[in-house]
């Protein structure tokens, strides 16, 4: 099929970017979206033009490194990662607009590559259980009801891609933050420090400059791992009860 791509090009964070249009022909429906971009980049390289930079790694939908805002939706028209999006989702003659994630907490590095280290800093602020290696109890010491373990797992499947932030009209990171808070608050191992965790992670999220939640549900609707909105409610609950009950004045 033949396609027209409108791609955001930006040499570096300080320079002004803009859209550039490329025509592509001979794209197979079996290609993944990123393989289509590979074709574009091979073409560009052969012509001596700088290839389009985009983040990607595992290409099997789990590492969370790929991004791209495709025709107005993060990861394109389906609820999946860009690497798992295939060209059969497009038609011959389509115009495809490709933009980077837009958020002040995700500054652009180059072209479609953004810096998502704010997510790392949020996890560093409290997204863990404070146990050192060794000296832990036997794995079967504390039984965990299957439903709780499963619910915790559902929250834990977040891949940290940032589609929630990209989809949210407020560039809010609440789905990401709440998924981690939920995963750990549900498990007995994580309950011990759940109040401090909620306080610290929310504070870090705010410090990074993410927006507030207006409950539009766009994050969850676009999340490739289908993280539920109920996580955000649980985070709110955890945060308010932490704020009322911890002794941090």
């Amino acid at each position: 099929m033949n396609l027209t791509l409108k791609v955001w090009r930006q040499k570096n964070p300080s320079e002004k970017g803009g859209f550039k249009t490329y025509k592509l022909s001979g794209i197979s429906a079996d290609m993944s979206f990123l393989e289509m971009l590979d074709v574009l980049n091979e073409d560009l390289s052969e012509k001596g033009e700088d290839p389009v930079h985009f983040d990607h790694d595992c290409r099997e939908g789990i590492c969370g490194m790929c991004s791209l805002y495709i025709n107005g939706q993060p990861h394109g028209p389906h609820q999946t990662t860009t690497c798992q999006l295939h060209m059969r989702s497009f038609k011959d003659g389509d115009i495809i607009t490709i933009e980077p994630w837009r958020a002040s907490a995700f500054p652009i590095v180059k072209d479609l590559v953004v810096d998502r280290s704010s997510f790392d800093r949020i996890i560093q602020s409290g997204g863990f259980v404070s146990v050192n290696t060794g000296g832990v109890p036997d794995a079967n010491e504390i039984p965990i009801p299957k439903v709780i373990a499963d619910e915790s797992f559902d929250s834990a499947t977040c891949i940290g891609c940032g589609a929630c932030v990209a989809a949210c009209k407020n560039a809010s990171a609440m789905l990401f933050v709440s998924a981690k808070i939920s995963q750990l608050a549900l498990l007995p191992q994580g309950k011990v420090e759940k109040r401090e965790r909620a306080e610290k992670m929310v504070a870090q999220m705010d410090a990074e400059g993410f927006g507030a939640c207006t409950n539009t549900g766009a994050c969850s609707a676009e999340c490739p791992k289908e993280i539920k909105l109920s996580n955000i409610a649980r985070m709110n609950r955890e945060y308010f009860s932490a704020s009322l009950s911890t002794e941090n004045i």
Partner: peptide, 25 residues
């Protein structure tokens, strides 16, 4: 105002209707 600041550059193309209701936005 805070939320606007969180996304200083808007998307050129946005298909928000695919993921949320008009009134919520």
């Amino acid at each position: 105002r805070h939320n606007k600041k969180s996304r200083p550059v808007a998307y050129a193309v946005s298909k928000a209707s695919a993921n949320s209701t008009w009134s919520s936005r």
